[in-house]
Design a protein around this nucleic acid. Structure first.
Length: 468
RNA sequence: GUGGGUGUAGCUCAGCUGGUAGAGCACCGGGUUGUGGCCCCGGUUGUCGCGGGUUCAAGUCCCGUCAUCCACCCCA
């Protein structure tokens, strides 16, 4: 909504952000780590359009997801026709044909269905923004970046193990140490729901309630299930199935697995359970093993998952840092052959949020290394000095206008500039082909020939001089 | 979409039971015409989120609205 009087708000739309230089620096640092780890695992980058045909997006994410899609209004004549032709009701389905992508998995599935010459096992990563017409909150935006890794073309559980290991290593390299990687299986959830005698129509609703076990505890979930129309008896059966071990520990996970294996030995859930067991063992051979936890209550919202699902998080964040799972039927939904696939996604802004709150960033800087401060000489001479220093490999800013020297030095040290060095150029220096290099933090300064300034600057940047 | 809190200077905020809008920091100028950070002096900064109502008088009370934050819902 714009203000009256033609004065538009200068804030970005709710749920979006502008990124100032320091923000961009931190984002690039994290993205750089993500890229380098993903590439170590042999994943190759792809990018896809910001918007897709609505038919590509609809029906892939479940009811809630469809609601949260940003739709693009028809344009020009098509819009007029749609509005005019309508005898009866005009619905939003008639007025939009495109939508902003909601995640990176569905576009990947489309790409796989479209191109037949992809490698037999297509390992790609994709780091791009997605959009959701959601209400913003802590760590939650309407425009945010996802960092996806996927392996397409195999139903082997080694693929699950690899994507989980990759995201875990990204987080480890960023400095995270107490992670939890929760794993579960869609088939197992279906099996447990069936075993508890809960109607299939209520499966989705029951799963949402079950997923809150961490937050609400067994009693809370029972209450929530009751509100959703699940009998107390069924709720108890469901909760009993997920129980069977201490929370959070590797021992507990093993106990829960064993408990379920004995309970479901002849159920449809049994084969899912064998997958979980196998994946559990495979994860033990990767860096993800020490964080893995079997969480039979984990549900995850997206409806396209068919097999193992996982979610990675830290204590002090209510939501997750990332998650994923197997989606063997998604590519087939585009009307071509079915292709098995599994992937995992990290939420960039969630990672940044936690890193910010914990002060986990290394020192980062862009901006100039040297500020050329000049007075009593022609501006053209200042520019020449600046270029000479750049030619010596330095990042150089030339103070843009006439000013007192003190003012220029102060500006060089401004929090928004933070040039560590100043190159002072007055008539004296100019005549002798020299400049005065000053280290701002220590106050140390030295007259030096212009041709040697780069070397001295690098010395000082590497090991700051002591005050003098 | 539901419930609650908060909107006053660039930033953080004060402003009592209504009586002509404040502080700190930041910023600008000077003390210091070739040396910043410390200090001193001076200065600028506002449709008090927006619209309406009550009143002699509204930053203050009432209604609406928008924005934002928190919780729920859902999620990366």
């Amino acid at each position: 909504m714009t203000k009256r009087g033609g004065q538009a708000s200068t804030k970005p739309p709710s749920g979006t952000r502008d990124f100032l230089p320091d923000d961009v620096l931190r984002r690039r640092y994290v993205v750089g780590v993500v890229e380098s780890v993903y590439e170590q695992y042999g994943f190759a980058p792809i990018e896809t359009p910001a918007f897709e045909n609505l038919s590509t997006l609809l029906g892939k994410y479940g009811e809630e997801g469809d609601k949260l899609l940003f739709r693009l209004l028809l344009r020009g004549e098509a819009l007029r026709e749609a509005l005019g032709a309508a005898e009866g009701e005009v619905g939003q389905a008639d007025l939009a044909d495109l939508g902003l992508r909601y995640d990176l998995t569905v576009p990947l599935a489309r790409v796989v269905a479209q191109y037949s010459a992809l490698p037999r096992f297509f390992k790609r990563y994709q780091i791009q923004p997605v959009w959701r017409a959601d209400r913003p909150g802590r760590g939650r935006y309407r425009e945010f970046y996802q960092c996806d890794v996927d392996i397409v073309g195999t139903d082997s559980l080694t693929a699950e193990a690899e994507v989980c290991a990759a995201v875990v290593q990204v987080l480890e390299r960023l400095g995270f140490s107490e992670l939890s990687l929760r794993i579960n299986h869609r088939g197992l959830l279906r099996g447990m729901i069936g075993r508890a005698g809960i109607d299939e129509a209520m499966e989705q609703s029951a799963l949402v309630a079950l997923d809150k076990l961490d937050k609400l505890g067994a009693d809370g979930v029972t209450r929530e299930l009751a509100e959703r129309g699940v009998s107390e008896r069924a709720a108890r059966t469901l909760l009993d199935l997920t129980a069977g071990g201490e929370e959070g520990t590797g021992e507990g996970s093993a106990d829960k697995l064993a408990h379920l294996e004995s309970e479901l030995s002849s159920d449809p859930g049994a084969s899912a359970l064998r997958d979980v067991r196998e994946l559990w063992d495979l994860l033990g051979a990767t860096p993800a093993g020490k964080y893995a936890r079997f969480s039979p209550e984990l549900a995850r919202g997206l409806s396209y998952y068919t097999g193992p699902i996982f979610e990675i998080g830290v204590e002090d964040l209510a939501g997750s840092l990332g998650g994923g799972g197997r989606y063997d039927e998604l590519v087939g939904m585009f009307g071509k052959r079915a292709v098995p696939a599994v992937g995992c996604s990290l939420g960039l802004e969630r990672i940044l949020l936690v890193m910010h709150e914990r002060g986990m960033y290394p020192p980062l800087s862009a901006g100039p290394q040297v500020m050329v401060c000049w007075f009593g000489v022609a501006p053209a001479r200042a520019l020449e000095i600046g270029h000479a220093l750049r030619a010596q490999g330095l990042k150089v800013e030339v103070y843009p206008q006439q000013a007192k020297l003190g003012k220029q030095l102060q500006y060089a040290d401004d929090p928004g500039v933070r040039a560590p060095l100043a190159a002072i150029v007055g008539e004296d220096e100019l005549e002798r082909g020299e400049l005065t290099l000053k280290h701002l933090a220590s106050g140390a300064q030295q007259r030096v020939a212009l041709s040697r300034a780069g070397d001295l600057a690098r010395d000082w940047l590497d090991s700051p001089p002591s005050a003098g």
